[in-house]
């Protein structure tokens, strides 16, 4: 049963799309990740134009992060003040990101740019995760528990001006680093359609030393609003949000996530990470492969108005 996607301007099997949403939802439930980094490349592989893949993925991101954010908020795991600072940066980053997408799209280099971004990010993250989880598995076998990395008591972060007190996180730090982190994550959301938790969470823990119990909640809080802003900006300036596609992906995604979450509780953390690292590297290789092999068609059509 095919369904016509009005903005992607293509006809695709509704079951393929539902399945894709469910698979990504399953993975995001299993690993506790947003899944945007998988949905965008998958949509591009299906033939959805890259800008529409990114724009629609931001809408899916809102759906997949809001329930988590509400749950964390109810458990008082969100540092609202820190979240707002992150969000301020996030909005700025989103606006810049959408502007960059528009420029690259007009120059005809957006497809290349998005592929390079994904190859770079997925390659780095996949490799790091692979190494880390292999080490953990190795050490666990040797009976040695891995020691948590503890950075120095004071870093350059603490020397910056514009200090603010974040009660919930028990921090007294400059507002500049969280603002910049937020901006970078917002930028990533706008150009890649990802929540950026993989950047935000380590940055909050290692750079700002935010207590781990509020990290996830605050990160999700920021993701919901940044993804919402990115969705509206994508739709408003690039006409790249396909409501039909978004709806199908969301339905598949939320269902898949529930099954993923229950499956995840039966697997060990390091095994999960190893598995996720494998998936991330596979997607990365597939994207990189398309850039390197000689394409069967070296020409492509576009509308001069700035279409895909």
């Amino acid at each position: 049963m095919n369904i016509y996607l009005p903005i992607a301007e293509m006809s695709e099997s509704v079951f393929v799309l539902l399945g894709m949403g469910a698979a990504v939802g399953f993975i995001s439930g299993l690993f506790g990740v947003g899944g945007g980094f998988l949905i965008t490349p998958l949509l591009i592989f299906t033939g959805v134009p890259a800008p529409v893949a990114v724009g629609t993925s931001t809408a899916q991101l809102v759906a997949s992060s809001v329930s988590g954010a509400v749950a964390q908020y109810n458990r008082n795991n969100v540092d609202i003040k820190l979240g707002v600072v992150l969000l301020g940066g996030g909005f700025l980053g989103t606006v810049i990101g959408v502007g960059v997408v528009q420029i690259l799209r007009q120059a005809g280099q957006f497809d290349l740019f998005i592929a390079l971004c994904y190859v770079l990010f997925l390659g780095v993250i996949g490799t790091l995760m692979m190494i880390e989880s292999l080490q953990t598995v190795w050490k666990a076998r040797g009976g040695v528990t891995p020691s948590m990395r503890r950075p120095g008591e004071h870093s350059w972060v603490h020397g910056l001006p514009m200090k603010m007190r974040f009660q919930r996180s028990k921090l007294y730090i400059s507002a500049i680093p969280p603002f910049l982190i937020g901006a970078f994550v917002g930028f990533l959301a706008a150009i890649m359609g990802v929540g950026g938790g993989f950047v935000m969470v380590p940055a909050l823990i290692y750079l700002l030393r935010v207590p781990t119990n509020v990290v996830v909640g605050t990160s999700l809080f920021q993701t919901v609003f940044v993804a919402a802003a990115a969705t509206i900006l994508h739709a408003g300036t690039l006409i790249s949000v396909d409501l039909v596609l978004a709806t199908i992906l969301m339905i598949g995604g939320v269902i898949g996530a529930q099954f993923g979450a229950s499956a995840g509780s039966q697997l060990k953390g390091e095994q999960l990470r190893l598995l996720l690292a494998g998936i991330v590297l596979l997607v990365c290789l597939r994207l990189g492969w398309d850039l390197v092999i000689t394409p069967s068609e070296i020409y492509s059509l576009a509308s001069p108005a700035g279409g895909s």
Partner: peptide, 11 residues
């Protein structure tokens, strides 16, 4: 509309 739809679906 996309955002509202997403919020509704998620919640």
């Amino acid at each position: 509309v996309a955002v509202l739809l997403a919020l509704a679906t998620g919640l």
